[in-house]
Design a protein around this nucleic acid. Sequence first.
DNA 1: CGATCAAAGGACTAAGACATCCTTTGAATT
DNA 2: AATTCAAAGGATGTCTTAGTCCTTTGATCG
Lengths: 157, 157
Amino acid sequence: MLFTTTTEYALRGLSELVMRGGATQPVLLADLVEGTDLPREFMAKVFQRLVKAGILHSAKGRGGGFTLARPGEEISMMEVLTALEGPQHFNGCVLGLDRCNDAMPCPQHDMYKPVRHRLRDYLTNTSISDLGTALHEKRRQLAEQAVVPSNGTARVK
Amino acid sequence: MLFTTTTEYALRGLSELVMRGGATQPVLLADLVEGTDLPREFMAKVFQRLVKAGILHSAKGRGGGFTLARPGEEISMMEVLTALEGPQHFNGCVLGLDRCNDAMPCPQHDMYKPVRHRLRDYLTNTSISDLGTALHEKRRQLAEQAVVPSNGTARVK
DNA sequence: CGATCAAAGGACTAAGACATCCTTTGAATT
DNA sequence: AATTCAAAGGATGTCTTAGTCCTTTGATCG
């Protein structure tokens, strides 16, 4: 809804990367996608773009793989979005007009502004480290749930 | 950003329709797009879909055109969005996962929830009448501005 | 140096979005 | 009934997005 498929893959891929220690040691694409439904070949293209955008670092050959180019705390969802879809995504009106101008003013500019602001806040203030941590935590909870599946004392959501 | 081009066109077209009295009398597509950059032929397709969705009513031949099928106050942006892009757009995670499940839980579900809620509120509580009114008002302001362009007493934004 | 490993990159296919053109249908006017 | 009007609908074309496959590049290990 908010992102293109490409951006969604990027964010999910980065979450996985962070969760697998990609902040410090290289992670292979093959390892990263295993157990997920992320399409390997396509992810390779997406990660290539992230390398060029200065978000990822890559190394070929043995001991290679992908690592974060910078600390994960410094990479926001917004930066990923911008790298892949361009910067203009948050400057336009709700209705997608190029410009709110004389010929066709955006009738919703004022009402949409606070909504967009909220959205922008979320995207700029959430880092891919946050995504990785949240993913890790979710999986931990699910694992715990699986171990004590029908025990009344276990908190199961 | 939020919508596909098709949905944007639909919302803009409906805004124009309402502004031109399409709530009560039929408006021709040709009239509706004139002075805008809305592509006539493509808009015809979009409006066809809105007719089938029960949002618009159409009439062929002389005296024909498009009118709202129901009062504009009762038609929300969300309804238009849903009619054109399907209902699943607001039920998913930020990351676009089909389901937040064991195999791949959404790492951001909880944090994104309030943001989505805000967005949903905006879209369900804004009707196409609101859009039409806002459009009309904006154009009125611009016209006023144009009449007294360099007069110090005129409030110009 | 040669083998192997893994990302980079090019070529290609499929599907969907966006857009236009032309014919058909149905209604109103003469 | 004939004409005209305007939307409905089918056919087609183009572009972008999504996705796969295969070759090349560059690094490391033996």
